[in-house]
Design a protein around this nucleic acid. Structure first.
Lengths: 202, 202
DNA sequence: TCGCTTATGGGACTCCAGTCCCGTAATGAA
DNA sequence: TTCATTACGGGACTGGAGTCCCATAAGCGA
């Protein structure tokens, strides 16, 4: 089972398939918020759907978890109206992002672990949706840094406050969740300030 | 099988056990440098030792890989004599660390993945050995930052240039290995410089 | 050399992820 | 209502990680 093509839902019994898919995702979310990383079998059972069918919709546990990850439909996470000051914009986006990671930490960890699996994934398991948010926050620096510089800085910001850094600061460094968030926020400030004097490499 | 207590090797047939353990680690290293993440069974077979015995020494594939990770016996990685300038000290340690991570990337990824397993580990699977190196590099800042400040900064530095950040910059951001290293080096510079004006949170 | 201790080997077993085959039943068009 | 299409369910199967039991043989002291 290789996962279904994107167009699959669009032909034939559209509503039935959409309903099945939605039920699987809903069940996944419930189990995740209940605390664990559910097996595909558990999700299927909770949704009243057979394991086989669950695998028809999602090629792996990883894809199912990724699909269940809450979509932030918003293309921007800046307040309205967006502040003009760079530090306010950065603080808003960074705070939103760090809070989101902290809240969904178990799921984030599961997705990270599964994305590190032996078999490379074709499907975009971890999509880097947040990069655009950081780029937007950096709009005031566009002239000085240029498109490429802005992008590199946004990557550094995301790297500094993502789940990967959080995992190490928690598991190995032994910091408490609030300390992790504070240090990540501080690291983001560091890279932003540094970029203003020394542009990131390209 | 829960792994053997530390004192196990010290009682009874010491040399035999040490030999068995060494053979397992040697075989693991060979297979790793050959390119893959070996299964315990493969390691055992390559070492001419039974799978059961391999599990007697290492409770999991993760522990075996961690034990096979090259020990940098050196307590310092600064050149001799160590430079006095902060930026030279930081550049030396960071360069050494980033290069080491890049060279052992498959193994590092495997250890990261396995450390994210569902079952929490009691044994120190990932030990944070590098923290001391960064603390040492930061010696010139000890007076201004204080012990706690130095440690927090060292954690931020390690977080910025570790395998976790590397994974994201490679897999999601799509940077080439050399670009990843360059951006990580730049991030380390950023946090060090930032700490001189704005101490990290405690 | 003998015999006790104990490290080792063999192999069966559980659990989970993922695949595959095939029969059934729901859907929706004629 | 009839009937072809097709989504679904059941269940067997592979393969890898890790556990456990028991027999064997290697090590080491007497």
């Amino acid at each position: 089972m290789k996962g279904m093509s994107t167009g699959y839902l669009k032909s034939g019994r559209t509503r039935q398939k959409q309903r099945t898919r939605d039920q699987l995702i809903a069940a996944t979310r419930e189990l995740i918020t209940a605390g664990d990383t559910p097996r595909v079998e558990e999700v299927a059972e909770a949704a009243g759907i057979s394991r086989t069918t669950a695998y028809r919709y999602f090629a792996s546990q990883a894809e199912l978890l990724a699909a269940a990850y809450p979509e932030t439909a918003a293309t921007s996470v800046l307040p309205d109206p967006p502040p003009a000051a760079l530090d306010e914009r950065v603080a808003a986006v960074t705070g939103f992002f760090i809070d989101g990671v902290q809240e969904a930490e178990p799921q984030q960890r599961a997705m990270l672990r599964l994305s590190l699996g032996d078999v490379p994934h074709e499907l975009p398991l971890r999509q880097g949706r947040a990069i655009a948010w950081f780029v937007e926050a950096l709009a005031p620096t566009a002239e000085t840094l240029g498109d490429e510089g802005v992008r590199q800085l946004a990557l550094a910001m995301r790297a500094a406050c993502g789940i990967e850094t959080r995992v190490w600061l928690s598991d190995v460094a032994g910091l408490a969740p609030a300390q992790v968030s504070a240090l990540q926020q501080w690291m983001v400030d560091a890279v932003v300030n540094h970029a203003l004097t020394t542009p990131p490499p390209t």
